[in-house]
Design a protein around this nucleic acid. Structure first.
Length: 852
RNA sequence: GCGGAAGUGGCGGAACUGGCAGACGCGCAGGACUUAGGAUCCUGUGGCUGAGAGGCCGUGGGGGUUCAAAUCCCUCCUUCCGCACCA
C-alpha cells in the first residue's frame, strides 16, 4: 500500500497546473460576454499584496490559503475567476537594509520577491502569474506619476508647509515608525524634533462626504468594525459656525464651530487655540500678554502627539478681552486653552461648561461661571441641578458636579426656552443664518493625505522647480521620471535624491533653462491605491489600465486582508477610485464589493513577525508536512476571521486526517473505478448504501452552505471528517455496498475537499479514475431525496426535561407523535395521575408535555 | 470616555430562523497490533453524585420573557481591538 507522500503529489500537480495554464484568467471575447449564459460571469478574488521582506510565514500563508480556497471554489461554481498576485516593493525597510548591507534597495527587494514567489509556488496557490506586478518597476510607478499629474491639474494635489519628524543627529527626516518613544531609532539619546517643510498633499478631504456616505452601502458586505473605524476616522459632524463680535474691536470677530448651538445661552467663555491667528493681536501690548506670554509659548511648543494631548491637564489663561454672544448679547471672556485644536473646526470654541465635559473641567478649574440651559426632558419641574445651577446667580461654583451632555429641554435661553434640543438646533441655526452671524456647517476630522517622503526608494514626484516658472509639472510624455540607479544612501544628511546631482539637475520643461527636480518621493500607499486595476492589463504601455478590462473585471468581488489596513490603505484606495471615476477612467467608484479581514496567526500570544522571532516559516511547514497540511491546519483551527494560536500538535492532527483520507481512497479506488452507470435510485438502495449516501449528501448540503455563506471552513472540514468517520465505521464495504455507491461517496468527498487541499484532491480524483483533472470539475449539487432523513430521532420531554428518545418515521403527524410519546414507558409512568396542561409538538424534533 | 467584537470542557472550537449544549479536532487515559513507536486502529473523556439504571448542576454574573434560552430582552462584569480634549 502506498503511503501519502505530499512532496511527490504536490510537485506533480503543481507541474500539471503550470503545463495546463490552469489559472490563467482571460476576458471572454466581447460578444461572448453578453451571450454567455451557462456560466456565472467574472469573479475577482484578491488578497492584499505583500511587502516582500523577511520570510513568508504561516501568518501570510493563512491569508493566501483563505483566498485560494475562495478562488478555487468560485471556479468550481463556474465563475471566470481572476486571482492575481504582486509585490508592494517600494518602502523604507528596503532602504534601511540597503544602508545596512551596502547594497541597492532593488537587489534586496528582488531577492525577497524571488523567495516569496517560490514559497507561494510551493503552496500551489492558483494565481495567474502572467499578471504579476512589482510596484518598484518604472512601468508601474510611471502611472503613479501620471495620476499625480492628473490630480495636480484638477487641484487635487497641492503643496503646503507641514510638520515632519526630524532627527538632529542624522540631520534627516524620520518616518513615524523611525520615532521610538519620541526618540530617533538610531540615536536613542536624541529627542526627535519637528520641522516645517514644504510637502505635497492629495486633497482627500474633497471626497470626505462621499467617502463617509458610501460606507452605508458597504454595510453587511464589509466588516462592521472596518466601517466603524472609517466613519470614525472621517469624523463627519453636523453643526453650525457662529460669529462672535469682539468687544471694543471695531468689527473684528471670532468664529466658532459647534454641534450644540442649542446650548449657546450657556456659553461662559470663548476659548482659542494657542495657534489661533487672533491670539497675538488680541493681546498685543496688554497686561495679559506680559503675564501669559511664557505660558502661551509653552502651549505652542507642546507635543502634538495624541497620547500626550489626551492626557495633558487643561491649561489656559484669560486674554483680557471679551466677545459678544450674538444670541444673548452677553459679554464673554476670551481665553486661550491648550485643549482647543487649531486643526479642527475653526480653532476656537464657545465653552458651555454645564453641557460639555471638557468645558466643564476647564471652567471649574478657572472659576468661570457654569450656567445651566438644558434640563432633562423628563423633568416636569426644574430639577435640583437646574435650580441650583446658575452660578452667576448663586455665585457658587461647586453646586454642579458634572456636565449634563444629553439632549433635553432648553431653559434660561430667551425666546428659545421650552424648546427641545432637536427643535432648538434647527431653529437657532436658521435664525443665526437669517440674522447674519452664522450658518449650518459640516466638519470632518479627515485631513488631507500628505504624500511626500524624504526617501529614495519610492516614486519620484514628477515636478521641477524653475527659477522663472517656479513649480512646473513634468509633461506626461516625459514620464516616467526614473529613480537614479546609484544613489548615495547613508540615512544621514539631506534626502537621498537631493544628494544625487545627476537626478536633481534638469531643465525646465517650459523654458529649457536649468531647473531642479523635486527630490521627495511618494508615500507607498499611493502604490497600493490602484494596483488592483493594474493587474487587469499589467503590461499596458499606453495607459494605467485598459478601460475594457476594467469594465469587465472591476470591481474586486472579494478582497481579503488584515485588519491593520482597515483605515489607511482601504480609505486611500476608495479615494483613488473616486478620483479615477471623475477623471473618466472608471464607471464604478467603490473598489471592493466585499471585504474580508482574516485573523492573525499568533505564536506565544503575539502575531508572527520576524523581529519578535516567533515565526513559523511557510517553506519549513511545506517541507515537513506538505502544503495541503499547512492549508488544512490554518483553515481548520478557527473560523477565518478569528486569530489562531499556533499549535504544532494540531498540525499533526491535520496531517493525520489527510493520511486517513488518502488511505481511504486507496482502499476503495479499485472498486470505485469498476463502477458502471450512475443511476442511484433511492428505491434500489440497500440499507447500508442508503445510510452512506444520506450522510454524504447531507454533508454536501451543509458544506455547500458553509462555503456559500459564512466561510466557516473549520466546520466544513469537521463535516467531511464526520463523513470519513462514518465511512470507516461502515467498513468493510465490498460486500454490502455496490461500486457505484462507493464511487459516488468518494467523489463527492473529493470535490468537497478540493478547494482547501487542492493537490491531494487532484490525486484522489485521479485515483478514482478521472484523467481530466479537477480544473474541469464543477461543484456538485446535493440530491434532496438522498439527503432526506427517513427516520428521525424525536425527544419526548416532560416540563422541558428529556424523558425518552424515539426513532420514528420522518414527517409524522402531531397527534401521532403525541401518541407515540405517551406510549414511551418512562413518559407513561411519569404522566400517570398528572394533568397535562399543554402538549407542544415540533415535528421531527420533539414533544413536550407541560404538567402540573 | 466613544465606537467595534467577543466571553461555551484541560485546549481550538460546533450548535442553521429559540427545540437533546459540547459536533469535529487537539490533549489525556485505557486497550489492540508491534522488537519498538511520536505510525495505525479501537474505546473512553463537561462537573458533581450514584454499585447501577439514573439524578442534579452547567454556555462570564444577576434578573426577565417562554412549554423550552448559549441563542431573545434588561442589567452588571471581564477581555481584545480601534479612536481618543474633534467642540
Amino acid at each position: 500500500m502506498a503511503e501519502y507522500n505530499p512532496q511527490e503529489i504536490e510537485a506533480k500537480w503543481q507541474a500539471r497546473w503550470e503545463r495546463d495554464k490552469a489559472f490563467d484568467a482571460d476576458m471572454p471575447a466581447a460578444e461572448a460576454r453578453t451571450t454567455q449564459k451557462s456560466e456565472r460571469g467574472k469573479y475577482y478574488v484578491l488578497e492584499m499584496l505583500p511587502y516582500p521582506s523577511g520570510t513568508l510565514h504561516m501568518g501570510h500563508m493563512r491569508n493566501y490559503a483563505i483566498g485560494d480556497t475562495v478562488a478555487r471554489y468560485r471556479r468550481m461554481r463556474g465563475h471566470n475567476v481572476i486571482h492575481p498576485m504582486g509585490w508592494d516593493a517600494f518602502g523604507l525597510p528596503a532602504e534601511n537594509a540597503a544602508i545596512k548591507n551596502q547594497t541597492h534597495p532593488r537587489d534586496w527587494t528582488n531577492k525577497n520577491i524571488a523567495e516569496f514567489k517560490s514559497v507561494l509556488h510551493r503552496f500551489g496557490f492558483s494565481y495567474d502569474w502572467r499578471r504579476e506586478i512589482s510596484t518598484c518597476e518604472p512601468e508601474y510607478y510611471r502611472w503613479n506619476q501620471w495620476f499625480f499629474l492628473q490630480m495636480l491639474e484638477r487641484g487635487l494635489a497641492y503643496r503646503k508647509k507641514s510638520r515632519v519628524n526630524w532627527c538632529p543627529r542624522c540631520a534627516t527626516v524620520l518616518a513615524n515608525e523611525q520615532v521610538v518613544n519620541g526618540r530617533c531609532w538610531r540615536h536613542e539619546d536624541t529627542i526627535v524634533e519637528t520641522r516645517e517643510i514644504e510637502q505635497w498633499f492629495f486633497k482627500i478631504t474633497a471626497y470626505a462626504d462621499e467617502l463617509v456616505e458610501a460606507l452605508n452601502d458597504l454595510e453587511g458586505v464589509w466588516p462592521d468594525r472596518v466601517i466603524a473605524m472609517q466613519r470614525n476616522w472621517i469624523g463627519k459632524s453636523r453643526g453650525a459656525r457662529v460669529r462672535f463680535q469682539i468687544a471694543d474691536a471695531s468689527g473684528q470677530s471670532i468664529e466658532v464651530f459647534t454641534t450644540r448651538i442649542d446650548t449657546i445661552y450657556g456659553a461662559a467663555a470663548i476659548i482659542l487655540a494657542a495657534a489661533h491667528p487672533l491670539v497675538d493681536s488680541l493681546m498685543a501690548g496688554s497686561e495679559a500678554q506680559k503675564k501669559n506670554g511664557a505660558l502661551l509659548e509653552k502651549m505652542r511648543r507642546a507635543s502634538a502627539k495624541a497620547e500626550d494631548v489626551a492626557t495633558a491637564e487643561k491649561d489656559g489663561f484669560f486674554t483680557g478681552r471679551y466677545a459678544i454672544n450674538p444670541f444673548s448679547g452677553e459679554k464673554l471672556p476670551i481665553w486661550v486653552g491648550n485643549f482647543v485644536l487649531m486643526e479642527y473646526g475653526t480653532g476656537a470654541i464657545m465653552a458651555v461648561p454645564a453641557h460639555d465635559e471638557r468645558d466643564f473641567e476647564f471652567c471649574s478649574k478657572y472659576q468661570i461661571p457654569i450656567p445651566t440651559v438644558i434640563v432633562p426632558q423628563t423633568d416636569t419641574k426644574p430639577s435640583a441641578r437646574a435650580a441650583s445651577g446658575d452660578s452667576r446667580e448663586t455665585g457658587d461654583f461647586t453646586a454642579i458636579h458634572e456636565a449634563f451632555i444629553d439632549y433635553g429641554r432648553l431653559v434660561n435661553s430667551g425666546p428659545y426656552s421650552g424648546l427641545t434640543s432637536e427643535e432648538a438646533l434647527a431653529k437657532m441655526t436658521a435664525d443665526a443664518e437669517s440674522r447674519g452671524f452664522g450658518k449650518e456647517e459640516t466638519t470632518y476630522r479627515l485631513r488631507d493625505w500628505g504624500i511626500s517622503r524624504q526617501r529614495y526608494w519610492g516614486t519620484p514626484i514628477p515636478v521641477v522647480y524653475c527659477p522663472t516658472h517656479e513649480m512646473v509639472p513634468v509633461p506626461v510624455d516625459q514620464l516616467p521620471v526614473v529613480l537614479p540607479p546609484n544613489p548615495k544612501l547613508t540615512g544621514m544628511g539631506e534626502s537621498p535624491l537631493a544628494a544625487t546631482p545627476e537626478f536633481v539637475n534638469t531643465t525646465c520643461p517650459k523654458c529649457g533653462g536649468p531647473a531642479r527636480r523635486e527630490t521627495d518621493t511618494m508615500d507607498t500607499f499611493v502604490d497600493s491605491s490602484w494596483y488592483f486595476l493594474r493587474y487587469l492589463s499589467p503590461h499596458d504601455a499606453k495607459e494605467p489600465f485598459a478601460r475594457a478590462a476594467a469594465n469587465y473585471w472591476f470591481p474586486v468581488d472579494q478582497y481579503i486582508g488584515g485588519i491593520t489596513h482597515a483605515i489607511l490603505h482601504l480609505l486611500y484606495a476608495r479615494f483613488f477610485c473616486k478620483v479615477l471615476r471623475d477623471i473618466g477612467l472608471l464607471q464604478q467608484a467603490e473598489p471592493f464589493a466585499r471585504l474580508f479581514t482574516q485573523g492573525m496567526v499568533l505564536k506565544g500570544g503575539t502575531a508572527m513577525s520576524k523581529s519578535k522571532g516567533n515565526v513559523v516559516g511557510a517553506l519549513d511547514m511545506a517541507e515537513k508536512y506538505g502544503a495541503d497540511t499547512g492549508r488544512l491546519y490554518t483553515l481548520f483551527a478557527a473560523p477565518p476571521e478569528k486569530d489562531i494560536e499556533w499549535s504544532e500538535a494540531s498540525v499533526e492532527g491535520a496531517a493525520r486526517y489527510l493520511r486517513r483520507v488518502f488511505a481511504l481512497i486507496e482502499r476503495h479506488s479499485a472498486e470505485a473505478k469498476s463502477a458502471h452507470g450512475t443511476n442511484l435510485e433511492v428505491s434500489s438502495l440497500k440499507e447500508k448504501e442508503r445510510a452512506l449516501l444520506r450522510k454524504t449528501h447531507q454533508t454536501l448540503r451543509r458544506v455547500s452552505h458553509d462555503f456559500e455563506t459564512r466561510w466557516h471552513f473549520n466546520s466544513a472540514i469537521a463535516l467531511t471528517m464526520e463523513l470519513v468517520n462514518e465511512i470507516h465505521a461502515a467498513e468493510p464495504l465490498e460486500r454490502s455496498v455496490r461500486p457505484e455507491v462507493i464511487r459516488e461517496v468518494l467523489e463527492l468527498l473529493t470535490l468537497m475537499l478540493a478547494p482547501m487541499i487542492p493537490h491531494l484532491a487532484e490525486e484522489m480524483w485521479e485515483m478514482l479514475g478521472h484523467s481530466g483533472g479537477l480544473m474541469a470539475a464543477r461543484w456538485p449539487d446535493y440530491r434532496a431525496e438522498l439527503a432526506a432523513d427517513e427516520m428521525v430521532e424525536v425527544v419526548a420531554q416532560i416540563n422541558g426535561r428529556v424523558r425518552a428518545k424515539m426513532t420514528v418515521e420522518a414527517g409524522l403527524a402531531e397527534e401521532e407523535l403525541v401518541a407515540r410519546a405517551k406510549a414511551e414507558p418512562r413518559v407513561a409512568s411519569e404522566l400517570a395521575g398528572k394533568h397535562v396542561v399543554k402538549s407542544i409538538v415540533v415535528r421531527d424534533k420533539l414533544v413536550n408535555f407541560v404538567v402540573r
